[in-house]
Structures are given as C-alpha cells and as structure tokens.
Write a protein that binds this DNA or RNA. Structure first.
Lengths: 101, 101
DNA sequence: TGAATATATGAACAGTCATTCATATAATGA
DNA sequence: TCATTATATGAATGACTGTTCATATATTCA
C-alpha cells in the first residue's frame, strides 16, 4: 500500500485535470502550442479566467511557457500529460459504448 | 479538438481521483477486494466518510459491489482504474526524481 | 512619451464538496 | 423477538475553488 502522503499528492495531480476549463486548455495544447489570447478566443472563456487557470497549470509544471514579445506561448510540459488525457478519453468512450449495447 | 461536453465529462472522470480519501480507497482495492469496515479501519477514516465516498465511486461505476450477508464487498470495476492510478504514480515519482537531480 | 495590445493578478462572491453527527436500514444470532 | 453488527444516508457545516471585475504590468508602435 502506498503512503497516505504519496496518494494525496496523486490526488492533487489528478485535480489538475478535474476542471472543464483546465482540461479543455490542455486538450487544446495537445494539438499545438498557443498563446493566451488564442486559447481564450477558441474556448470562449474570458482572458482573465484563462490566465488564472494557466497559472495553476504552470505551477503544477503541466505546461511550460515562452515569451515572444508581449505574447506568451503555452505548451504541454511533457508527454505524460498527453497520454493521460488520451487514456482518459478512451475510457469514457468505451464506457459510452458499453451503455449503447 | 474534442467537444466541450466530452471534455467536461473527462474532467468529471478525473474528479473521481482528485480526492485523497477516494484515491486511497481505490489504491487499496488495487490489491484485493475489501468490505466497508476493513477499508475504514485500514485507512483510519470514519465508517460514514468511507461509505459516502464509496457511494460516489459506485455511482461513477469505478467500483462494483457484492453483498455477502450483512457485509458489502467492494472491488475495482475494471482494469482501466488500476492502470490510471499506476500511471499517475509513475508520473509523480518521475517528477520527484527530476527534482533531486 | 503616450496609446494600444497582451497578459497577470488580487479581492470578492457563489457554488461545490468532504466530513461529521445522528439516525435509518438490513442481516445475524441468541 | 431483541440485541448486535455492518452499512447507508440526510442535514449541517466549514473549507476550497473557479469566475468576474477592476486594475496592474509589460511590450510595441506611432
């Protein structure tokens, strides 16, 4: 059995993905890096809300940033993030299929 | 890009794992099925709190149950759950290793 | 330098959620 | 049937969190 502390950390890690705005941002970045304004426009979420969520993703080391002039580009920090999202999507798609039988 | 609705569902799915008590229960069931009382005792969480969380896991189809007399045995519903927990654990272990360099 | 654009952030508010407490339901055994 | 044991659940509460609004910071360009 893993320690309570480690499992709490694991819970915190999954918390990152447990919000519609954040996971939409991450899935969007799966395709290609994007700047804040683009993300806000594509997802139709206010610039402020996006920026707040990006900060959370940044602090969790789930995205990395690069400043180009006055714009800031965000991208996924590593391949794990992509894989976890993909696996989660597969899971709920299978769940949906099972319901349809 | 996936639909807003699907990604919100995905967020809800990850929400299941985003709580210390729930993920501790799930990780405990990774090893072997257990009844409510055992779970509460091992994790040192009140019977009521465990039962409330088990209900959430049940409704999310993440665990399944079997009643034996007055006891109710809980087990992981499918292999996906085990895999997701394992992958998440690997991720945060790697993260820890990177910090140590 | 001043205006415009891009991003970040603090405070406040509303909604969500996990635990506790008390109690209900259900099954067993005497 | 009555007491005991195992589990479930509703209400209340405190804590947490995502968005909005206003504003700050930083960069570019005229």
């Amino acid at each position: 059995m893993e320690s309570k502390e480690l499992l709490t950390e694991l819970g915190d890690f999954f918390k990152i993905f447990a919000d519609p705005t954040r996971i939409r941002i991450l899935e969007l970045l799966t395709e290609k890096e994007k700047c804040v304004g683009e993300i806000a426009e594509i997802l139709e979420v206010s610039q402020s809300a996006v920026s707040h969520q990006l900060k959370i993703l940044r602090l969790a080391n789930v995205v990395s940033t690069e400043k180009k002039g006055q714009m800031v580009t965000y991208r996924l920090a590593d391949e794990h993030i992509r894989i976890i999202i993909q696996y989660g999507l597969e899971h709920i798609r299978e769940e949906k299929n099972e319901k349809d039988l």
